[in-house]
């Protein structure tokens, strides 16, 4: 399969080739791959793609999926305009 034609994260334009570059550098966790490729940094925080990244880590490094931690989730899960936040402070 041509890895650079497989889009893992459409928001940050991360391809399977980008994921594999990290795996070849020796990284084994979702958090490492997130920081180096930006996968999971878009609006969905990996909802649609982290299971694919976990699959690849598992296959490449022969690690059980149960031993691969998912990434930490941060606020926000959807977007809030600055003016709405400011209004509330008033």
């Amino acid at each position: 399969m041509e890895k650079n034609k497989i889009i893992i994260c459409p928001y940050e334009e991360v391809t399977m080739a980008d994921i594999h570059k990290c795996l070849e550098m020796g990284f084994t966790t979702v958090e490492d791959i997130k920081r180096l490729t930006r996968v999971g940094m878009g609006p969905c925080q990996g909802r649609d793609c982290i299971h694919i990244v976990v699959d690849e880590i598992s296959k490449f490094n022969h690690i059980k999926k149960s031993d691969i931690e998912l990434m930490h989730i941060r606020p926000n899960l959807a977007n809030i305009p600055l003016k709405a936040l400011m209004e509330h402070k008033k």
């Binding site: 926000n76 959807a78 977007n79 809030i80 305009p81 709405a84 936040l85 209004e87 509330h88």
Partner: peptide
């Protein structure tokens, strides 16, 4: 909790 419809807070 913070809750939004994308426009409010």
């Amino acid at each position: 909790l913070s809750i939004s419809d994308g426009n409010d807070f």
